[in-house]
């Protein structure tokens, strides 16, 4: 099934491409596995060497955090949007 990955500006500006990517996958884990192959730099900024989402990154399926769902094993349905937000430091 096709879902959309929406990247915060800090991520898409520095990983190339636009804010939205269309990816196939039945779970967040599957989508991220494809991301690792297609865009390893982006993947590395989201997940650490163990495959876990970095503590300063928030991943949402639509508007719910995957920490409140089933983590990387959160199931997806067609049309879902995965939003990846990186921490913002400045002020």
């Amino acid at each position: 099934m096709t879902v959309t990955i929406h990247l915060s500006p800090l991520l898409h500006h520095y990983c190339g491409g636009g804010p939205d990517r269309r990816v196939q996958g039945a779970s967040v884990r599957e989508v991220f596995a494809k991301l690792e192959l297609s865009d390893p730099k982006l993947y590395a900024s989201v997940c650490d060497e163990t495959g876990s989402v970095r503590p300063h990154v928030n991943v949402f399926v639509n508007v719910e955090s995957i920490r409140d769902l089933q983590g990387l094993d959160t199931r997806l349905v067609p049309g879902d949007t995965i939003t990846i937000l990186q921490a913002v430091s400045g002020g």
Binding site: S8, P9, L10, H13, L85, V88, S89, G90, G91
Partner: peptide, 8 residues
């Protein structure tokens, strides 16, 4: 927080 054109 803000950086670039993005904020929280």
């Amino acid at each position: 927080a803000v950086i670039g054109a993005e904020g929280r």
